[in-house]
Design a protein around this nucleic acid. Structure first.
Lengths: 235, 235
DNA sequence: CGTTTAGAATCGTAGGACAATCATGTTGGG
DNA sequence: CCCAACATGATTGTCCTACGATTCTAAACG
């Protein structure tokens, strides 16, 4: 306790540097748990319906209950888990109709993202950045089972959304994308071929060409195709 | 301050009142604070940029810090406040571009809501419910300055969204509507006429007629009109 | 076999504590 | 007089403990 001021001074003097970007902010503990659970969704260590007991999580990550609660609240705010009063949190289960609802919205939003991206494709290094993520995604055409494909597709969508310079849209899409990924993962496990490289190709080419209308239509068509794929899938 | 525990007990026992609102599940404390602050946005007791200090809020509502923090986190998740690490919460300030971004998205979402509503207008009591909220809104045509108008317009939008039976969309719209309301309030203070009853009329009639296409177009046109209004507004 | 009820789990919320960090005012040097 | 280093206070981040409230579980009972 008596070392307070000296320790502080030391830390101060050894850290005169200023964080460069806003993103450097060093994630908080709830942030870490949040991302840890989201990642758990990706690799299957958390499955829909699974219950998340606060006490377990506090022990698992060695944090306090308040911290766990904050993380759970954020997960609930994103619709990833559902909270029932006095009954705790559980990974949300998306039924068919909710998936359909999600896709109905995503059709519009991804269409909008594609249109905006096409509109600004020639600003700054947008063209190069987008082309990069686009080619990285298409490189998986030959090996569509790769785990890396998920990352590439993620990057493709993120880049698409970022070019449009609509931060609200970016936020919405990343949040909804988490749900989409779960849907796609489940479909993959069912042996469905969910990757539609021809769709990605149309979207990418239209965006690169700066063709607003074609980009939006291609994106919307892609989402609709996924929806009809899911409609045909087993329950 | 020696009355702390006794005062707490008194408050506890004198608070068996129930909200009796739509939510049967009895709102939690963070819920109450959340709604209290949102309401504060409506009546002007909270203005954009205003800082929300945890200690103040705990005292103001007599709840613990954890509770306040949960409320703040939820407000942040909805984009109503912004949190900066170690710097606390502040009511979010929407700049021109963010408003434009919001409206760009809302154009699509409200259009979708109108289309879905038109699609299902003849199911159950949808027609009656919608007509009711529609006429209630149009009744304010003669006195557009009324405070009640805000409520009527809110109900109109809520009804519109609920008929579509897309819960995701409903959630999104209510969340984004909070921001819209702040924009409209600000515009009203600037003496702008933001109510466009002709727009409401077109939307309502198209929905009631079950004309999907016309309903969607009318809704989108309405949002675009609001956007161009704002573009013409002073900074 | 269905119902009741006691106990265990778990959550909701309060309250206190302390380090980390930020904001601000102060001081000493140029 | 201005600027940079420093000390101080304010506020947040996180931990801990505690206890009533609610739900779940399962044994006891009719």
């Amino acid at each position: 306790m008596t070392t307070k001021s000296t320790a502080k001074a030391a830390a101060r003097s050894s850290h005169p540097e200023r964080p460069a970007a806003e993103a450097v902010h060093a994630a908080s503990s709830p942030d870490l748990i949040f991302h840890e659970i989201v990642r758990g969704l990706y690799n299957g260590s958390y499955v829909p319906g699974q219950r998340l007991v606060e006490a377990d999580l506090t022990q698992k990550w060695g944090v306090s209950r308040g911290t766990v609660r904050e993380a759970l609240n954020r997960l609930a705010a994103e619709g990833i888990v559902v909270l029932s009063r006095h009954r705790g949190a559980a990974i949300r289960i998306l039924d068919r109709e909710e998936i359909r609802n999600l896709l109905t919205i995503l059709e519009l939003l991804i269409g909008l993202a594609a249109r905006l991206a096409a509109q600004r494709i020639n600003e700054g290094d947008n063209h190069a950045r987008f082309l990069d993520s686009f080619e990285a995604l298409m490189a998986f055409r030959s090996r569509p089972d790769s785990f890396e494909l998920v990352r590439a597709r993620n990057r493709f969508y993120r880049t698409l959304a970022s070019i449009g310079r609509n931060t609200e849209l970016q936020g919405l899409l990343t949040r909804m994308h988490v749900h989409l990924l779960r849907v796609q993962l489940r479909s993959q496990q069912d042996g469905m071929l969910t990757e539609r490289f021809d769709d990605y190709s149309s979207i990418g080419q239209a965006v690169l060409a700066g063709d607003l209308r074609r980009a939006e239509l291609a994106a919307r068509r892609h989402v609709r195709a996924m929806q009809s794929l899911l409609d045909r899938a087993p329950a």
